Simulated scan of single mutants.
Amino acid sequence: MAGIRALIGLAFSGSIGMTFLVLACALPQYSNWWPFFMVAFYLLAPFPVVISRRYGDGTGNTNPCREIALFITAVIVVSAFGLPIILARAPELTPVIMWGSAGLVITANIIVFLTILGFFIAFDNDDVDYSMW
């Protein structure tokens, strides 16, 4: 039952993060769909860790495969936080996105990446029964 509660909580927090992202794109004063490219970072972030868990030897916490996967994941997360700032600062006369939109995107990034981290913490066990999904 705790797995179901965790899954529902993660789904709720992920939907809140995506709501902030859509608000950054769709509010009338921002009305620009460039911030929606953050979804690519959200989809790419968990892949290195998942692949390293699949192909890692599993002996200990510090093996090179896991370390490289964590580094690549950190690069993806930092890039996701850097892109809206760069888009907001682009040319000073006509910025690609407004600073309010960048703030909403950064808020969405915090919520979605904490949701992804929460998923890995909640379902870290190898003996998780996947048939409950």
Results as ranks from 00 to 15, higher is better:
1 M>Q: 10
1 M>G: 14
3 G>F: 13
4 I>P: 01
5 R>A: 13
8 I>V: 12
9 G>N: 14
10 L>H: 05
10 L>F: 04
10 L>G: 01
11 A>G: 15
11 A>Q: 09
12 F>S: 12
14 G>H: 03
14 G>V: 09
15 S>I: 09
15 S>R: 07
18 M>Y: 05
18 M>Q: 09
19 T>R: 10
21 L>K: 02
22 V>K: 07
22 V>Y: 14
23 L>R: 01
24 A>P: 02
25 C>A: 15
25 C>L: 06
26 A>P: 07
26 A>N: 10
26 A>V: 04
29 Q>C: 07
30 Y>P: 00
31 S>K: 09
33 W>S: 08
34 W>L: 04
35 P>A: 01
36 F>V: 12
36 F>Y: 13
42 Y>K: 04
44 L>K: 07
44 L>N: 04
44 L>T: 06
46 P>I: 02
46 P>N: 07
47 F>K: 10
47 F>E: 03
48 P>A: 02
48 P>I: 00
50 V>G: 01
52 S>G: 11
52 S>E: 14
52 S>F: 13
53 R>H: 10
54 R>E: 05
55 Y>V: 09
56 G>V: 06
56 G>Y: 11
58 G>V: 07
59 T>V: 13
61 N>R: 15
62 T>H: 15
62 T>A: 14
62 T>P: 00
63 N>M: 03
64 P>N: 09
64 P>Q: 10
65 C>V: 11
67 E>Q: 10
67 E>M: 10
69 A>Y: 02
71 F>L: 14
71 F>N: 13
72 I>W: 01
72 I>E: 06
72 I>S: 03
74 A>K: 07
75 V>P: 06
75 V>K: 06
75 V>N: 08
79 S>K: 01
79 S>E: 03
81 F>K: 06
81 F>V: 06
82 G>R: 03
82 G>L: 13
83 L>I: 10
84 P>G: 04
84 P>S: 08
85 I>N: 12
86 I>A: 15
87 L>M: 15
88 A>C: 04
93 L>E: 15
94 T>R: 09
94 T>S: 08
95 P>A: 03
96 V>P: 01
96 V>G: 06
98 M>G: 12
98 M>R: 15
98 M>S: 15
100 G>M: 01
100 G>P: 04
101 S>D: 06
101 S>Y: 03
103 G>K: 02
103 G>N: 10
104 L>H: 00
105 V>E: 14
105 V>T: 15
106 I>R: 09
108 A>Y: 00
108 A>S: 12
112 V>C: 06
113 F>V: 02
115 T>M: 05
117 L>E: 12
117 L>I: 12
118 G>R: 11
120 F>T: 03
121 I>Q: 08
122 A>S: 15
124 D>E: 13
124 D>M: 04
125 N>Q: 06
125 N>M: 07
126 D>Q: 10
127 D>Q: 09
129 D>G: 14
130 Y>P: 02
130 Y>R: 13
131 S>H: 10
132 M>C: 04
